Computed example of a mutant assay.
Amino acid sequence: MSIYTKGGDKGSTSLYDGQRVKKNSLRVNTYGTFDELNANVSLADKFCVDQRNVKLLQHVEYRMFFVQGEIATQSFSKFKKNSKVITEDDVHFLEKVIDDYSASLPKVTSFILPGSSVAGAQLHVCRTVCRRAERLLVAFMHSNYVRPELEKYVNRLSDFFYIVARSEDYAYRIKQVEDEVIKRYKKVVEEKSNGC
């Protein structure tokens, strides 16, 4: 089966519920930006050194399909009939991660550079793409109904990416220190074995 349908050759695309709209519509631009975000999240989880963060990001990646699907459907009832939706539980999940990580990480007293590790830097990319997607969602809400749960979830997402980025940077710094200690220890052992 071919992956191309030719249905969009004249600048329109099908929504989840079969309605056709222009590819440059605000609806398509909004869910397309969340799609871009999700691709960036997938890249971020490949760079993470902390396996907890890999699992957290993969959890969010699946939820992003629900976010995109709901925005890509004009009829919420049709979407809900065929898919899971973002709920208050999903919002609370993000809030718990944010609160737990905020309590366990060193306090921040000034602005920080966006990522001292590869994973941290990529998660800051996620944070900024998420903010752009949220701005589009807010514009979209001026003429379309968006459930409060979905709006809150999107708003918490950028804070989630920020705190997971900090977690990855912290794990990276700890690993750097551990690597340096091991390197120095090996050097001392080697010098002793050589009679130095």
Rank of each mutant, 00 (worst) to 15 (best):
T87D: 03
E88R: 11
C48W: 04
G32S: 06
V54E: 06
D90V: 13
R52P: 00
V54L: 13
R52M: 04
Q58A: 08
E36Y: 06
F93Y: 15
S83C: 11
I86E: 03
E88S: 10
E70R: 13
D89Q: 08
R63P: 00
E61N: 09
E88Y: 01
S42W: 01
K80Y: 00
N40W: 09
T33F: 00
T33L: 14
N82R: 05
V91M: 04
L56M: 14
L57F: 14
Q74V: 09
K55I: 05
V54M: 08
L94Y: 03
A72S: 14
F66D: 15
Q74N: 07
F66H: 11
N53G: 02
K78G: 03
F79G: 07
H92L: 15
Y31K: 08
D89N: 08
M64Q: 12
L94E: 08
A72L: 10
V41N: 00
F79T: 10
F93D: 04
F76Y: 10
S83A: 14
N29Y: 00
M64S: 08
K46G: 04
E61C: 05
L94W: 08
N40M: 11
N53P: 01
G69Q: 14
A72V: 13
V60Y: 09
D35R: 06
V85H: 03
K84A: 03
I86Q: 04
D50R: 10
Y62V: 11
A44I: 14
F76W: 05
E88W: 00
E61V: 06
N40I: 07
I86N: 01
F93I: 11
V67G: 01
N29P: 00
V60H: 02
D35F: 03
E70D: 07
N40Q: 13
T87R: 11
Y62Q: 09
T73C: 15
G32Q: 06
F47I: 09
V49M: 14
K55Y: 02
L56K: 13
V60P: 02
D35P: 05
T30F: 07
V91W: 02
D35N: 11
G32N: 06
V67N: 07
F47S: 11
V41A: 03
A39M: 13
F76Q: 10
K78A: 09
K81E: 10
K55P: 04
V91T: 04
Q58R: 13
K81G: 00
D90C: 10
N38W: 03
R63N: 08
V41S: 00
S75M: 06
H92G: 00
F66T: 06
F34T: 04
V85K: 10
S83H: 15
S77Y: 02
C48Y: 04
F76A: 11
F76N: 08
I86A: 07
L43C: 04
I86P: 02
F76S: 08
K84R: 11
A72D: 09
G69D: 13
F79L: 12
L43T: 07
N38I: 10
D45M: 11
V91P: 02
Y31M: 05
K55Q: 13
L37C: 05
V85N: 06
F47T: 07
V60L: 15
E70Y: 01
T33Q: 15
E36V: 13
Q68N: 08
E36F: 05
G69Y: 09
N40R: 09
M64P: 07
G32E: 03
F93T: 03
Q58H: 12
F34K: 05
A72Q: 08
F65E: 09
D50A: 05
M64L: 15
L37W: 00
S77M: 07
E70P: 01
F47H: 13
